[in-house]
Simulated assay, not measured.
Amino acid sequence: MSQEIAVVGSPDFTTGFRLAGVRKCENVPDGQKDEQLDEAVSGVFEDDNVGIVVMHDDDLDHLSRGVRETAETSIEPTLVTLGGGAGAGGLRDQIKRAIGIDLMEEED
């Protein structure tokens, strides 16, 4: 069973998670995102101990098409994005994907 949280992003983004006790953090400097982000994200999604992957929403734009599709459609580990365009609709979609039902389904 996957129980570890992994955080991928810039050192500024991952520092707060490290201070909160997250042990698996992949730092990708802002100037090297295009070269190293795919590798870092692929690595955490292949790790059997990781159950949740946290990234900044803006970093999704730097992923190659294949890695981005894998990240966005993965059930386990589950991708959680923060910041940027990850507003209420984005969080709702993430919860729905993670548990398979829409908890805020609107009634007619």
Rank of each mutant, 00 (worst) to 15 (best):
G83A: 15
G100Q: 12
D58V: 09
S74T: 04
V67T: 14
L91P: 12
P77H: 14
G66M: 02
D58E: 11
E69V: 08
I95S: 00
I75P: 10
R97F: 00
A86Q: 04
E76I: 07
R68H: 01
H62Q: 06
G90Y: 00
R65S: 06
V80K: 11
L63M: 04
R97I: 01
L60N: 02
L91W: 15
L82T: 12
E76R: 15
H62D: 11
E76D: 10
L63A: 01
V67H: 04
D61M: 03
D57I: 03
E76W: 09
L60W: 02
T70C: 02
I101C: 09
I99D: 12
D61Q: 15
E76C: 10
R65G: 12
D58Q: 13
S64P: 00
I99C: 12
H62S: 08
A98R: 12
R92I: 00
G100E: 13
V54R: 08
G89I: 05
E72T: 15
D93F: 03
L103T: 14
Q94K: 11
G66W: 02
M55N: 03
P77R: 10
Q94Y: 08
D59Y: 15
H56C: 02
I101Y: 14
A71H: 04
G100T: 13
G66D: 15
G83C: 08
T81Q: 07
G85H: 13
E69Q: 07
A86I: 02
I99K: 09
G100P: 05
H62N: 05
E72A: 06
A88D: 02
T70P: 02
Q94E: 13
M55L: 08
R68F: 01
I99R: 12
D59H: 14
I101K: 15
L91M: 09
G66Y: 01
H62V: 01
G85D: 12
E69R: 13
G90E: 00
D61G: 11
T70G: 01
L82D: 07
T73M: 00
L103Q: 11
R65E: 11
G90F: 02
R68M: 05
S74C: 11
L91R: 07
I101N: 08
D59S: 12
R65Y: 09
G87E: 04
S64L: 06
T81C: 05
A98T: 05
D58G: 10
L79C: 02
I95N: 04
L79F: 06
L82R: 07
G83Y: 10
G85M: 11
R68V: 05
R65N: 13
P77E: 15
G87C: 02
R97T: 01
H56Y: 06
T70D: 03
V67G: 02
D102I: 08
I99G: 11
M55V: 05
E72R: 12
R65I: 07
M55A: 05
I99P: 14
D59V: 06
E69M: 09
D102M: 09
Q94W: 05
D57E: 14
T78A: 14
T81L: 09
T78P: 02
H62L: 08
H62G: 00
R92T: 00
I95R: 00
G90S: 01
T78N: 02
M55D: 03
S74P: 04
E72Q: 15
S74N: 13
S74V: 07
